[in-house]
Computed example of a mutant assay.
Amino acid sequence: MNIVAIIPARGGSKGLKRKNVLPLNGKPLIAYSIEAALKLNDVKRVIVSTDDEEIADIAKEYGAEVPFLRPEYLASDTATTIDVLKHTIEFLLEAEGYKTDHVLLLQPTSPLRNERHVREALDLYLGNQCPVVSVCLADTPPFLMRVKKENYLVPFMELPEQKATRRQDLPEVYELNGAIYLTDHHHLMNENAIYTDKVIPYVMDKRSSVDIDDEIDFKLAEVLLKDGAV
């Protein structure tokens, strides 16, 4: 079984400039994802897909492979993660004859996701032979959200059963936290998706689910890391 970890990290970012290489608690942000992947014996290769020379140099320094620099059309704001993953898989096959059976996608913006989380998600994946994605409990259930319609607020989503008056009576809902995705060659290359009709959730706590998009997220992650959150 051939599992390859792919860490996509382009140089441009709008919310927080150069975030993938910014020093977080003593090391570049991207280093946390590389180190988590390298500690897993099941993962045969850890590859960083980037268009940026500095990111490439840092990735190599921390032990990842950077077999190519991502082409410009995959470094834009409109490029999708699926396209980046497929490009990596196709490159490995065409340039090296290396076939990837399973893919572990780790976003570099989740530094509090560590090897224990990835190991547990990987065990779920291997035990069920079904795509796995990491999630956390949603802060606000959609049943409490409102949309504006003709100047009035109306429910975004009606409760599937009788109306509940207390938050604790509402169904638990989850949101993707962007930390871990596990899938196979078929879903990526043939379905053009990480998962289709079935996917298994790996539930993470809120602290470990911090996803860095802006400066506030970055400062929060730094505080939690110093506090020993993981």
Rank of each mutant, 00 (worst) to 15 (best):
L122P: 04
E54H: 02
G63F: 02
E161N: 06
L74Y: 06
L137F: 12
K14N: 10
A121Y: 05
P67V: 14
L225S: 00
G15S: 12
Y174D: 12
V223L: 10
L159P: 03
E172F: 05
E90W: 01
H87G: 11
I6Y: 00
P67D: 15
V147F: 13
S49Y: 06
V135F: 05
L29T: 01
L69Q: 10
P108Q: 06
M157T: 14
F218N: 04
I58E: 00
Y125M: 15
S110C: 14
I216M: 08
R167K: 09
K39Q: 11
K148M: 12
H187V: 04
G11Q: 08
L40M: 11
L106H: 02
N128L: 13
C130W: 02
A138F: 15
I89Q: 11
R167V: 05
I82P: 08
D205T: 01
N151W: 05
A59C: 12
G63H: 02
E65L: 09
L74V: 03
N41A: 13
S76A: 11
G178I: 05
Y202H: 14
P142D: 07
Y73D: 14
L225G: 01
Q168K: 15
L74H: 06
V84Q: 09
Y152T: 15
A56Y: 04
Y181S: 02
D51C: 14
L93C: 13
E175W: 00
P142T: 04
L144F: 07
Q129R: 07
P8H: 02
I47L: 14
L16H: 00
D184H: 08
A229F: 01
E90T: 06
P141C: 01
P8Y: 02
D217M: 06
A164N: 10
F91H: 11
L40V: 08
I6Q: 03
E150K: 09
F91P: 15
V66E: 05
N2L: 12
N177M: 04
D52F: 01
R113E: 09
D51R: 02
I3F: 00
E61W: 01
A179V: 08
A95H: 14
S76T: 13
T140F: 05
L22T: 12
Y125N: 13
A5T: 01
D57Q: 11
K226N: 10
L220P: 03
N25T: 11
L38I: 14
S209I: 15
N41E: 14
I89H: 08
K60G: 13
